[in-house]
Simulated assay, not measured.
Amino acid sequence: MLSRTTRVADELLYPRADETAREGVPRGHLDALAAAGALGLATRAPALLRQATEIISAADGATWFVYAQHHQPVRAVAGSPNQALRDRWLTPLLTGRALSGHAISHLARPGPPVVTATPGAGGGWALNGRIAWLTGWGLADVVLVGALAPDDRVLFALLPAEDLDSPRAAVHRHTLWSMHATHAVAVDLNDVPVGRDQVVSMTRHADWLRAHLNHNANTHPAVFGCLRATSRFLDRYETFKAWSDSAKLRAEQLRSRAYGLIDTRPPGEAIDDRLATRAAAVDLALRTAAACVAAAGAGSMCSDTTAARLMAEASFHLVHSQTPRAKDAYARLGGALGGSPC
């Protein structure tokens, strides 16, 4: 599977990455990854998904991010007590015949819930509120939506994408300077119905939030894919060879540390170490991407260049899966590196 995924990355994703950043991620990229077996990794060993993530994100950050949306819904469906839903969707999702996205990050925001679930007739629900970010619009066949129910539980529902593109919903396309190619939208929900057969699970919000925050303290493997991409770009320039070699060495040290924490420590332990490692890895990706801009020269100011794309992709990791704790860890890193940013 990893060999097939590498071939897709090297022969399809990487040669077209700059074009994809301009034109948007095509469904064909996800179909090729599905044929390689890369869309069925959510229920397999985590190390496999980490390796595939690094391979794909090193080739094309936008395709990686659409690809990344698929795995949480697959895990949710695989663990669902709803037998009918598993029978209907699990095999298509694992094989990539159906592509999924998710809209759950709003559940981690403080303050009043932004997406709510109200009990309806026959054991169903009605969804209201605004999904601020939904990636893969027009590509995903189904979307895992999280909504807060009145009893402080979270309803997770798997909805066909067309249910979110109906008179009961309004779609607003985002204009982004980074990852614009990922087809990101906001969706307003107005009594969008959820049938019993579409309910994936119900869980206590506090339990979900604890697991979410613990998971997001880790360094995402895509950061190391980004570092592969920036180092590969710098290798073209003799004057930046030493920079590239140094970045590769530091990236491998951070990678070993990050994955060691994931593999050997329980999720709720060593949170400060996880966050510090994450901050250091993202900072290294940003500095190495900046070196790509410097190496390419003034031409890199054009938004359709490889260096500009790499800078935008590296910058994205500042906010991807960001939590207040992750932001604080990055601020502490900045203070340690050079004191006041002024």
Results as ranks from 00 to 15, higher is better:
residue 46 P to E: 08
residue 6 T to I: 10
residue 164 L to F: 11
residue 52 A to F: 09
residue 119 P to M: 00
residue 219 T to R: 10
residue 144 L to K: 11
residue 227 L to M: 04
residue 310 L to C: 01
residue 19 E to W: 12
residue 58 A to G: 07
residue 37 G to P: 10
residue 194 V to Q: 02
residue 279 A to S: 07
residue 11 E to S: 13
residue 23 E to G: 13
residue 285 A to Q: 11
residue 108 A to I: 05
residue 35 A to C: 13
residue 48 L to C: 06
residue 28 G to S: 12
residue 56 I to W: 08
residue 342 C to E: 15
residue 134 L to Y: 04
residue 23 E to W: 14
residue 298 A to M: 15
residue 106 H to Y: 06
residue 195 G to Q: 07
residue 306 T to K: 04
residue 86 R to M: 03
residue 258 A to F: 10
residue 146 G to C: 08
residue 57 S to V: 05
residue 14 Y to G: 11
residue 66 V to I: 12
residue 14 Y to F: 13
residue 151 D to A: 01
residue 1 M to R: 12
residue 7 R to V: 14
residue 244 S to L: 06
residue 328 D to W: 15
residue 10 D to R: 05
residue 237 Y to N: 04
residue 122 G to C: 08
residue 236 R to W: 05
residue 254 L to M: 00
residue 301 M to V: 14
residue 86 R to G: 05
residue 335 G to P: 12
residue 112 P to H: 12
residue 215 H to E: 15
residue 91 T to Y: 14
residue 299 G to R: 10
residue 296 A to W: 05
residue 223 V to D: 03
residue 155 L to M: 09
residue 331 A to Q: 14
residue 321 S to R: 14
residue 284 L to F: 11
residue 316 F to D: 06
residue 93 L to Q: 09
residue 129 G to H: 09
residue 320 H to S: 01
residue 232 R to M: 01
residue 139 L to Q: 04
residue 45 A to R: 12
residue 192 V to Q: 09
residue 188 D to H: 11
residue 221 P to C: 08
residue 234 L to H: 08
residue 37 G to M: 08
residue 124 G to T: 04
residue 335 G to T: 12
residue 103 A to T: 05
residue 27 R to Q: 00
residue 220 H to M: 13
residue 257 R to S: 00
residue 141 D to F: 08
residue 75 R to H: 03
residue 322 Q to P: 00
residue 109 R to M: 15
residue 3 S to A: 15
residue 59 A to N: 07
residue 207 D to F: 12
residue 86 R to K: 12
residue 298 A to S: 15
residue 278 R to I: 11
residue 192 V to S: 07
residue 82 N to R: 00
residue 9 A to T: 04
residue 238 E to M: 08
residue 312 A to F: 04
